[in-house]
Nucleic acid binder design. Sequence first.
DNA 1: TGAATAGTGTCTTTCAGACAATATGCC
DNA 2: GGCATATTGTCTGAAAGACACTATTCA
Lengths: 225, 225
Amino acid sequence: MKEKGLRDYEHPSVTADIVVFSVKDNDLKVLLIKRALKPFENKWAIPGGFLRMHESPEDAAHRELREETGVDSCYLEQLYTFGAVGRDPRGRVISIAYFALINSDDVSLRATTDAKDVKWFSVGKLPKLSFDHKEILDYALKRLRWKFEYTTIAFSLLSGKFPLSNLRRIYETVFDKKFDKRNFSKKILSLGIVKETSEIQQGVAFRPAQLYGFTGKVGDIIKMI
Amino acid sequence: MKEKGLRDYEHPSVTADIVVFSVKDNDLKVLLIKRALKPFENKWAIPGGFLRMHESPEDAAHRELREETGVDSCYLEQLYTFGAVGRDPRGRVISIAYFALINSDDVSLRATTDAKDVKWFSVGKLPKLSFDHKEILDYALKRLRWKFEYTTIAFSLLSGKFPLSNLRRIYETVFDKKFDKRNFSKKILSLGIVKETSEIQQGVAFRPAQLYGFTGKVGDIIKMI
DNA sequence: TGAATAGTGTCTTTCAGACAATATGCC
DNA sequence: GGCATATTGTCTGAAAGACACTATTCA
């Protein structure tokens, strides 16, 4: 039987879009761009762009992330593929959505040619979003909370040496509730992922904390909180 | 600035492919088709096909599933989108993979025009698969086990009234290990999802079991096993 | 010495998991 | 009676969660 060629079908367009989270000033932030192009010109959207023929969706997501933030490596996972028929006024567009978690200290935001502006928004105070990006962001937020609860991805927001209270504050920010210091330390230390270092915190106006460092890998599924 | 049209980019093709699981004869099965077309003609593959321009990926998955099995409604969730550059010899093809869980009693298998054969395979004895379908299937199997452990999707393999031992045997099949009857019943009944009915099992050559029915919805995330 | 945060231990409750003897229905 | 499966409760260990006082540094 004759091979049916790919040309026998119309093709949708495919984009990789990324929900980039960070924790800054004890607040959970999302990175948004102000679109320079129609449709939704001058409206806020999550960063992303069309998949090039020679790159995998993951590569496209990494490229977009690098273009907007300068960040080369960070926690990045595929979230979900959104493909409802009418989701883009330009025609049939499938969006492979990713979610990323970056340490905002590492970031130098820069608007690309497609964007007039790039900014961190508190997830509590989001502007109206383009396309179905609100739905994507809500889904990402659910996934984020779930991953924080059941894995150690939170640790990817820290680097080098840090006091345990930093980690606790990240959890408190993401879940918007307080955690007991003693129980939190007990839990984290029992995981064996962090280890006390010989250093203590510098330049704080109160008792400086012991600093901890990573000993192992991060990301396995376990019950965290 | 001028709107950049969708035509300014080359488009990949997009397929919806489905890993269909069922439990039959105390064995975990996967549905495979024997391809009628090149490439991989006469080789086994997971069912799927190109996305039509007027249908969502979910609709496409449902359509493919209906075409191969006659099943209209079942547990279906999006699994992952596979898009590595060289995954299809015909060119750039993005596969939105789904995983489905069906009760094989409800099924009447039928080969479509694209398939010479459709068959259930034990996950322990799979043939060599086309494309990257082995990778997709392995991923689906991981997700399946995970979902069985943390949600009540297993219940979607049962319908009407059933003895608890049926449910237990499904778990034993999927995890390939025995579960203690007492602990299992305790756990299941404590969920409040099933309720004793007034009926008992008929036509068995041993003590007939109490039949249970569903009282609520299935699928929430909880620790199951 | 006051302000801010660090550091530390015990008790209670809950849940998972191990474990075995009796009951029922069919042949 | 023999066979195959159903039904039922207790104990133990681990982990989560509630809870409060003392220590350290700086201004």
